[in-house]
Computed example of a mutant assay.
Amino acid sequence: PPPLPPQMLWLLFVTLPCLGASGSLTAPHCASPGPGLGPELVGTDGDHDIPAGKWPWQVSLRVFNEECDRWQHECGGSLVHPQWVLTAAHCVGLWVTLAAPLLRLYDHDQLHNVTEIIRHPKFNVSLSAWGGADIALLRLEAPVMLSQHVNPVSLAPDSLALSPGTKCWVTGWGTFGTTFPCFPPCPFPQAEVPIVENQVCEKIYRQGSPAGGHGSVIKKDMLCAGRRGRGSRQGDAGGPLVCFWLDMWIQVGVLSWGMASGHIDYPAVYTRVMTYSSWIYQHVPLWP
């Protein structure tokens, strides 16, 4: 696709991941933000509170809703450098906004200019996420101020091989694959999900997915993760899948697409970061 012209894009970095709404096409309602959480706890995982700063790289992409007259959450993303954000290419349109670590979505948001959008050249707009290469980079006008609550995530090396069953974590605002928004400010969930082998994932999607057509549903640049009943309902499109490896958190996937079904447990499908590490570092300086 032709390069995107510069647009008025904004990136909001929240001190902790607590943004709301989903990566779906359903626009969030215009409900007024409610009171924020306290400074030490910002989300939930079932019955457990998520401590502030646990996922300091989480980002929220925003689109401008004219009816609500404000920027609203549409997709997730991750801070991979003080001046760069990684997300899904299908999330990046003409009028988009971004957000990263704060206490609650729409609670004391702080916006930062985004000056450049780089979608992978092999991303096909017509095929969207199903076509692969669903990955994009966004450059901020200036580096963000880092702290214990705002910090980049390391990217998995291209040599990393993930074994099926490896437990990783997906984060976001928990509505990916649904059609309803939450009432802002929204709680920030996290979910532990196992890696699903690509051939197994392919067979699952072949059971009833219209995504198949001709050729493979799950491309080589994709990876799958999910557990029974929660495969594609955690996190936001464009958001990170991270694994704990060699005493550090590394990002292995960018949430791309998925399906929901009452009788089939579809894993969520991610863009495989390892496939694109060389392309990412063509644009993003090594850090730290």
Score class of each variant (00 low, 15 high):
Met145Trp: 08
Gln282Ile: 11
Gln190Lys: 15
Thr26Asp: 01
Thr44Ser: 08
Tyr266Ile: 07
Pro143Cys: 05
His73Arg: 01
Gln7Asn: 05
Val217Asn: 05
Pro143Lys: 08
Met274Ser: 14
Val217His: 08
Gly53Gln: 04
Gly43Val: 11
Phe176His: 15
Trp84Gln: 06
Ala88Arg: 07
Cys68His: 01
His214Pro: 01
Ala161Tyr: 08
Ala52Leu: 13
Glu66Ile: 00
Glu74Asn: 12
Gly215Glu: 13
Pro285Met: 11
Lys167Met: 10
Leu41Met: 13
Leu162Thr: 00
Pro1Asp: 08
Ala268Asp: 07
Ser256Phe: 04
Val14Cys: 04
Gln190Asn: 05
Cys168Lys: 03
Leu155Ser: 07
Glu202Val: 06
Gly262Ser: 07
Leu246Arg: 10
Ser126Val: 10
Asp45Met: 10
Trp84His: 02
Phe13Ala: 06
Ala52Asp: 01
Ala156Asn: 02
Val96Phe: 12
Arg206Pro: 01
Ala100Met: 09
Lys122Ala: 13
Met259Val: 09
Leu138Tyr: 02
Ser261Gln: 03
Arg139Asp: 00
Leu94Ser: 09
Gly20Asn: 03
Gly23Phe: 07
Val273Thr: 05
Glu202Leu: 01
Asp107Met: 04
Trp55Ser: 04
Leu286Ala: 11
Gly235Val: 01
Gln110Cys: 05
Asp69Cys: 02
Ala133Asn: 15
Leu16Cys: 14
Leu79Pro: 12
Gly77Val: 05
Ala52Cys: 10
Leu223Lys: 03
Trp130Val: 13
Val114Asp: 00
Val92Arg: 01
Leu11Arg: 02
Leu16Asp: 02
Pro2Ala: 07
Val273Phe: 10
Leu9Asp: 03
Val242Arg: 01
Arg62Cys: 10
Ala268Ser: 15
Cys75Val: 03
Pro157Ser: 06
Arg230Gly: 08
Gly229Ala: 03
Glu141Val: 01
Met274Tyr: 03
Tyr205Pro: 08
Ser60Trp: 14
Leu111Lys: 08
Ser232Gly: 15
Gly43His: 07
Val144Leu: 15
Pro194Arg: 13
Thr179Cys: 11
Ala52Val: 15
Cys18Trp: 10
Lys122His: 11
Asp69Thr: 02
Leu9Ala: 10
Pro288Leu: 10
Tyr106Pro: 00
Trp257Arg: 13
Gly23Trp: 08
Pro39Val: 14
Lys220Trp: 06
Pro157His: 00
Val217Met: 10
Gln7Asp: 00
Gly239Gln: 03
Glu66Arg: 02
Asp236Val: 12
Gly231Phe: 03
His263Lys: 06
Leu61Ala: 12
Leu94Glu: 07
Met248Arg: 15
